[in-house]
């Protein structure tokens, strides 16, 4: 008999969730309330706020004069456990910093998002603060990001 009452109680809980959520969501749906009642985040339109320390896609920073902060020291490539960073350095003839990257590629398909490159960078040139999680591509090669794609915020 106790079991029977517990069963009824269970029904009560689910029924309460159902009715409360139905009420709240109906008000929200017709625009009378801002409380949705449910936890669903309707993804493409709504986005959950990312935490400031979350590690997502990389970004290459620029100096005040528009030059890349990166001096192609290969520290990130050295620290990278996935070996996904490819850098080609070249001489920067007009700048007191003699070196700049001609090519800076990150294979995001291989990247493990560990953030070691950010830690390793002596120039604060690379960060993972682009809070964009979307990285779907039809070709693997499209996941190899070059300087142009990496400097976009």
């Amino acid at each position: 008999m106790k079991l029977f009452w517990e069963a009824i109680k269970g029904l009560g809980i689910t029924a309460r969730h159902l009715i409360v959520n139905l009420w709240k969501f109906s008000l929200y749906y017709v625009g009378l309330s801002r409380d949705k009642g449910v936890v669903t985040v309707e993804y493409p339109e709504e986005r959950r706020e990312t935490f400031p320390r979350v590690r997502l896609r990389h970004r290459l920073l620029r100096r005040e004069d528009g030059r890349l902060r990166c001096v192609a020291c290969f520290m990130c490539a050295t620290a990278c456990p996935a070996e996904c960073i490819y850098i080609e350095a070249e001489e920067d003839p007009d700048h007191p910093l003699e070196k700049r990257p001609r090519q800076f590629l990150i294979d995001l398909g291989k990247c493990a998002y560990c953030g070691f490159c950010v830690e390793a960078c002596p120039e604060d040139a690379i960060r993972m603060d682009v809070h964009i999680p979307e990285l779907a591509e039809y070709e693997r090669d499209n996941l190899i990001y070059d300087i142009e794609k990496l400097t976009k915020k």
Binding site: V71, A72, C73, M75, L97, E98, K99, P122
Partner: peptide, 9 residues
């Protein structure tokens, strides 16, 4: 202290 751009590093 320009080890990042120095080839000898």
């Amino acid at each position: 202290m320009d080890c990042p751009i120095c080839d000898q590093a």
